[in-house]
Amino acid sequence: MNTQVTIAGVTLKNPVMTASGTFGSGMEYAEFMDLSRLGAVVTKGVANVPWPGNPTPRVAEVYGGMLNAIGLQNPGIDVFLERDIPFLKQHDTTIIVNVCGKTTEDYVEVVEHLAEEPAVAMLEINVSCPNVKEGAIAFGQKADALFGITKEVKRHAKQPVIMKLSPNVTDIAEMARAAEAAGADALSLINTITGMKIDIHKRAFALANKTGGMSGPAIKPVAVRMVYQAAKAVKIPIIGMGGIANAEDAIEFLLAGATAVSVGAMNFVNPYTCVEVVEGIERYMEQYHVESVTDLIGAVRE
């Protein structure tokens, strides 16, 4: 049984990753699991300088999921390279760094810093965070803007580039094609869906930011649909995510066309989720006599 998958020349021991922003740089969850069990750790978004993020409340529960408006709080690339990368290097897993920025120059600055770090296998470019006013999603909601930022990042990146797409668009296939045309090596989707919650007793927004990104099992059907549409539109590999709670969910994404998957909000619900997904995929492969996990990619019957 072979659980390996390859994305842009980088081979992962299995197709299970952590979704950026739900797993820090792995330190907190290393208390619960052996990070070496994971196909990859995708870090929390890192910018060129420290970002303070949004005011609280930053999180709220909704039916079958949650809203967050953290606002990409992060310690900046210098601390990240000194502290987080050496920590992750101790584990036998692939390191993918999520990069955020307000301007093209911000993204490029981080990408250039990371180019000097051979332990970083891939970059994931966050052009889809709905919770910051500048940059981020502004690059991810128009095909020409996405094309531009992808092209610029690719020009400076030493590692393969994954563009993380927003679901808050009219046509995900058009966005996927724009990123591919600009040279993206892979796509990841979906980021959170913009949502809102109002406390009727206080007549107040549940989040200080008013809107937040929705994640959790309730968004999974939207995510599976978008992964399917994106996979149909492009040839580059896709990392699927959105509400994955168990191996069955993960396999759904693979069948829809994802080469790998990420576990996000469900890490908060069960800190052992990632490892349980890895083990569940193996059991499914045994049960259905699947020799290579790659046989599942896009294998839904049309």
Binding site: G21, T22, F23, G24, M27, E28, Y29, E31, K44, G53, T56, P57, R58, V59, M66, N68, I70, Q73, A265, N267, F268, P271
Partner: peptide
């Protein structure tokens, strides 16, 4: 959300 320091909520 997480209770363990990962989500920064």
């Amino acid at each position: 959300a997480c209770g363990v320091g990962a989500c920064l909520g």
